[in-house]
Amino acid sequence: MRRIMTALLALLSFNSVAQAAEAVRFISCPIYRDTDAGRKSGCWLAEERETGRRFDITQSATKPDWSMAVLIEGRIADNQDNACGAMVLEPVRVSILPAQACTRAMIPAEGFPGRRFVLPSRNIRPLYAPEPAPPPPYTAQLFPIPFDFGRDFVVYQQSDWMLVRAATYAKASGGNVVITGYAETEPVHVSGQSLAEPAGLGKTRAEMARLWLVSLGVPTDKVRVEWKQNPVPLADPAFDGLTEISRRRVDIRVTP
């Protein structure tokens, strides 16, 4: 019964589920655990230095680089499979912080199986079998696109899929498109550090989104670009219930 209730709540509002699980946010150096359950099956761990808790951050679309620090934002998962030998964060987002060097750390599998790679649900269809265009009626729609901290890189099997959806919808509906890029320039304090994005990042993110839409066939004259700073957080499935990360986004508004 409670299981059903939770599922229902999840459908109605992912926010209420998000509140159920503890959110974590910290900066640390990643550790690669060399598990082998086939391709892409290695585990990524990181220790929250403030508490000594070790987390499994493998489920992030962006995986760490073992020589650079990472900003980790996630929630402690309801289902703990212990495949990597640490507490699972899911949802979780990893942002690489290239300016902060880390000593490479690789540890053996130590009997942990890792996880077999499964194609994420957010994956772009090939050109020879494209996603069908969404049918009418067309209404005004918002497509928020998340970005990693400090970057305008479009995250593979996550934000790329969202951009393709936005482009598909904009093309099908023939609507006008307003792209608003945001940067989080107001410093936030994480693990004793003050993090802030450069002011220009909102613009480069917006321009990156425009490049995608236009390349994917949205007419240039339908697209307007603007950029701002420090938006209010947005509750949208694109952020998997992680409020903080939604300040680093691009909003694509399609108005038919």
Binding site: D34, R39, G42, K63, W66, R151, Y156
Partner: peptide, 27 residues
Amino acid sequence: KMFLITDSAGINSPVGFGNPVRNSCVF
């Protein structure tokens, strides 16, 4: 046959496969 692909730009950066990433020739 899997191995750890390391420090190969285009694979290990900037796309988020991770550095290192376990995969084979076919990756």
